[in-house]
Design a protein around this nucleic acid. Structure first.
Lengths: 199, 199
DNA sequence: TCCATAATGTAGTGAGCGCTACAAATGTGG
DNA sequence: CCACATTTGTAGCGCTCACTACATTATGGA
C-alpha cells in the first residue's frame, strides 16, 4: 500500500495560529482567508485536515482545553477550597491579560450567539466551559467531605459562581480591562468564599 | 417647504424587533434579511431610517439602555450598598432568564469579538456596559461617604466586581442556565458585599 | 391643483463568504 | 523504476452578504 504525499505543515502549530484568530475575531468574524494565511496553508489543506471551518474550531477548542488541563490540575491541587478559588481567580486574571494571547478567553469571545448557520458553535463553547465548572464542583464536593467547606455550603453553587466570575472577567478583559482591574475583581470574589470556609 | 411622505412604520416598535434579533444571533450573526423581516419593512426603509447595519445596532443599544434606565434607577435607590448589590444581582438573574426576551444580555451576546469590518461593535457594547458600572461606582462612592461601606472598601473595585458577575451571568444564561442557577450565583456573590458593609 | 419632498416596494449590485475541482507534486510499497 | 495514495497550489465555484438605483406613492405647502 502506498502512503501518499506527507503533510507539509505542523497541524498543532497551525492550530495554535487558528486559535488566536478565533480568539481575537470570534468564530463568525474569522474568515477562511485569515485562517489560512496565519496557518501558512491553502484552503484545500485546511479542509483536508479539519473538514470544515467548524471542524477547525472544534480542533482548536480541544487544543485549547488540552493546554489548560495541566494548569487546571495545579489549580485544584490547592489544599483548600478557598485556595482553589484564589488560585483560579488570580490565575485567570493573569492569563486573560497575558500579552502573549488575545485578551479574554476563547471560550467566551469565540461566539456566545451566532447566526442560523452556526447555531451549534455557542453550544460547543459552552460544553468546554462546563468542563471547568465540573472540575471545580468535584473539587468542592471533596472539600465539603473533608470538612474544609461548611456543612451549609453548596459545592455546585460555588462552582457556578466561580464560573460566572471567570466568564465575567473574560468579558471585561475583552473590552480592555487591565490586569490590575481583573485582580481587584478576583480579590473581591474570593471574599465570598471566606464565608463558606471553616477556619 | 414640502414635508415628504410620512414613515409608514413605528421606529421604536421596529427597533424592539431588531434588538431581539441582535440579542439572539449577535451583531454578525444577524442578517439584514432577518432584520427587515421582523421589522416588517424593506431594506431601503431600514437604511433611510438608520443609515447602516451598525447604525441600527447603535439605535437598538440606545433603546436597550433607555429601557433599562428606570430599572437601574430603582436598583440604586436601595438604602444600602448591600441592598443595591442584592437587587442588582437578583434582578439580573430574573431579567436574563425572562422568557419574554432572549436569554442573557444584549450587551454581552451582541458581540465581544467581531471581524475586521465590524471592529468597533465590541467597543460600542463595552461603552454601554460601562454606563452601568459607572452608576454602581457612583452609588458606592456615596455609600462609603455615608458610612454604609467600610473605610477600607474600594467603590470602583466593588462596581467592577458586580459588573463582572453580571456579565458572567449573561454568559451562563446564554448557554441555557436557568433562573434558579443564576439566583444561586447571585446569592453567593452578595456575600462578598457583607464583608465590605458596616452593620 | 400642482410642485417639492421624502418614504416605499421591486429588483437587483458588487464584494466577500465558505468551500472545492483539478492537475501537478511528493511520498511509499512492489 | 513504476503504480498508487495523499497533499499541495491555482483558480474559481455558487451563494449570501450588506447595501442601493429607480420608479412609484403619499404627504404638506403655495
Amino acid at each position: 500500500m502506498a502512503m501518499g504525499r506527507p503533510r507539509a505543515f505542523d497541524a498543532d502549530a497551525a492550530l495554535d495560529q487558528a486559535m488566536e484568530v478565533f480568539w481575537r475575531h470570534g468564530y463568525e468574524g474569522a474568515t477562511i482567508a485569515q485562517l489560512t494565511e496565519v496557518m501558512g496553508i491553502n484552503p484545500p489543506s485546511l479542509y483536508a485536515a479539519f473538514g470544515s471551518k467548524e471542524g477547525l474550531l472544534k480542533a482548536a477548542l480541544d487544543r485549547y482545553s488540552a493546554k489548560r488541563a495541566c494548569w487546571m490540575e495545579e489549580i485544584v491541587s490547592a489544599p483548600t477550597a478557598r485556595g482553589v478559588a484564589e488560585r483560579m481567580l488570580i490565575g485567570t486574571a493573569d492569563t486573560q491579560t497575558d500579552p502573549a494571547n488575545p485578551p479574554g478567553c476563547l471560550l467566551v469571545q469565540g461566539g456566545l450567539a451566532c447566526g442560523t448557520g452556526s447555531a451549534n458553535v455557542p453550544f460547543e463553547l459552552a460544553a468546554h466551559r462546563a468542563q471547568t465548572e465540573n472540575q471545580l464542583r468535584e473539587r468542592f464536593v471533596r472539600a465539603k467531605a473533608e470538612g474544609d467547606l461548611k456543612e451549609t455550603a453548596d459545592p455546585a453553587a460555588l462552582a457556578r459562581y466561580l464560573s460566572a466570575v471567570i466568564a465575567g472577567m473574560g468579558v471585561m478583559a475583552s473590552s480592555g480591562a487591565d490586569r490590575e482591574a481583573l485582580r481587584q475583581v478576583a480579590a473581591v470574589s474570593v471574599k465570598a468564599f471566606e464565608e463558606q470556609s471553616n477556619s
